[in-house]
Amino acid sequence: MKVLVPVKRVIDYNVKVRVKADQTGVELANVKMSMNPFDEISVEEAIRLKEAGTATEVIAVSLGAQQCQETIRTALAMGADRGIHVLHDGDLEPLAVAKMLKAVVDKEQPELVILGKQAIDDDANQTGQMLAALLGWGQATFASKIEMGAGEAKVTREIDGGLETISLKLPAIVTTDLRLNEPRYASLPNIMKAKKKPIDQFSPADLGVDPAPRLETLKVEEPAKREAGVTVADVAELVSKLRTEAKVI
């Protein structure tokens, strides 16, 4: 069974994100980038399936600028077998990503696609669902446990107020939540081996997809700065402020 794992290159979670002076986006020059943490969980899960003998091949795919190959290498260093890079400079929206992933799925015929439930840059939480719809496959989002059976997967999902376990026929889409696993560190021998693993490169045109954004970004602003607190004289003033200023009671 082939497993396909899309991995996204995002601003590292440790970096304090700053808005560009011209408000067209966020500052990316000289900013540390790394793999979307949810995608690390996806890669880890796929590698565990391979180690368990369930999966035969793990393919990491990334879409975007040339540097996305570094993100693919990270997946290869964790243990993925080979990479696919769709080279595109410029913004990519979830629908374009889902369409290109569908084209990759058509080509590779995996039985399972494991995606992060969302990326920590735009927090869209759409690509997995859109890909399932485009493929007409079943989907299990926000997975915290995956058990593979014959021709099906039993997935425990994190939902409001608890856990839901569903069974879905393969091929299928799974999106990962934080508690699914703890991703491994790329070991030094695997980092060296990853250099030799192949990465195929395509353009959106090769896949027959027009990646042009459907949305226009008008302006990006920083969230309002938190104002300094004040000391209230008594409970009555507190209640009054909660009612008239904070408007929460």
């Binding site: 990270t74 260093a77 790329a186 070991s187 980092i191 060296m192 250099k195």
Partner: peptide
């Protein structure tokens, strides 16, 4: 021979994370 900057940077990243 066969080593490279990309691998070195990945190794430093693993070190930093651990």
């Amino acid at each position: 021979r066969g080593q490279g900057r990309e691998s070195y940077d990945a190794i430093l990243e693993t070190a930093r994370r651990i």
